[in-house]
Nucleic acid binder design. Structure first.
Lengths: 189, 189
DNA sequence: CCTTCATTTCAGACATGCCTGAAATTGACA
DNA sequence: TGTCAATTTCAGGCATGTCTGAAATGAAGG
């Protein structure tokens, strides 16, 4: 760490934590730390700011920013009178969260759903009916979840928050409905 | 790959895919493949079965199973008349899914929530009020989501599925309610 | 169109993670 | 408690990922 830019103790610890968590989130330490900077910053940050704050190489910053752009977690923002690129995170935390969830779904779930559908089609002729049944079951379950997610994702943030605030009340509703209405489900395959 | 155990084409492709996805899911190829085996298997599998099916070393299987146990995604199951340990995945796919979500939350979200709370407390005396405000905002958002998750997670699977099936109807409900009731939210900090 | 600064790319060094065979440990059964 | 098979641990080797400085590319202003 060379002459670190002046960061408040609070920011330092926040950034350090995002670095530690980076690995668990499937990015890496540096990318995590770099992301943490514009989250807290009051103004868009440029690459030099990041170098000064974290003491990593200029090229590392470039590549890490590229990755963050790939995740759509940072946006370029032109700062008048400065030729350098500046970056910021969406001001609305909910917006960032939506993007994050969307990207993870795209990377971690969609490919599997696609592949399961392919295998399901090809399973028509396959004598391995046991495997085929389980593949169908898994495909159906994932589809149920992603369809629901798609629907909820259409809600504007205000209403999404309202839904989340319903928490316990919503649970009671569902519980009560279940005692009256028939909830017909194939529980297992 | 040495003399591979006889696996149907379908199983092979399923296992291969889980291997490919392993890296994206934060485990690794071998662990992913090993997990795929008992998912499709009709009976609990033992370490030797895995070695035969995947052609990896016995010690690798041991370590990978240890990791899967850490994720609570496989359970040991005693098979009468066989001294070897056997492993299976929960028969109910929803059960596995719940465990998976729970473990990821525990590893990827809870530590951050804990840390944000700590920082929030320590922020009392800190002059960096901008950072403090954003930390509070983030903590509150994550809490809202995890509280909601906790509530929904209490639902038994039947009712959880019913909720998911509601999808579009639920969205309409929320939409309609929003036009009538005041949904007071601080949208941004 | 040329200069200058910013950004990106890339090869090689370094670090981390993964896999293996050999050795140590565990545990069931006599 | 001794035996033996099964499992786990671990050091070392291989593979992959990360980071850097140097060189190439890009872009804005004269």
């Amino acid at each position: 760490m060379k002459e670190a830019m002046q960061l408040s103790r609070l920011r330092q610890e926040f950034i350090l934590h995002f670095g530690e968590m980076g690995a668990r989130w499937g990015i890496n330490r540096t990318v995590g730390q770099i992301y943490a900077l514009p989250v807290l910053a009051d103004a868009p940050v440029c690459a030099d700011d990041i170098v000064a704050a974290l003491g990593v190489s200029r090229s590392n910053v470039s590549m890490s920013l590229k990755e963050l752009k790939g995740w759509r977690l940072v946006n370029r923002r032109h700062v008048p009178g400065d030729r350098r690129d500046h970056f910021e995170t969406p001001q609305d935390l909910w917006h960032s969260t939506r993007i994050l969830v969307e990207e993870r779904k795209k990377r971690e779930i969609d490919p599997t759903l696609t592949r399961l559908r392919e295998l399901e089609l090809r399973a028509e002729g396959d004598p391995d009916t046991g495997a085929a049944a389980r593949i169908t079951e898994m495909r159906a379950m994932i589809e149920l979840m992603t369809d629901w997610y798609d629907e909820m994702n259409k809600l504007e943030t205000e209403k999404l928050v309202a839904l989340l605030r319903m928490g316990a009340r919503l649970k009671k509703m569902i519980d009560a409905a279940g005692d009256v209405l028939p909830l017909s489900i194939r529980t297992k395959g």
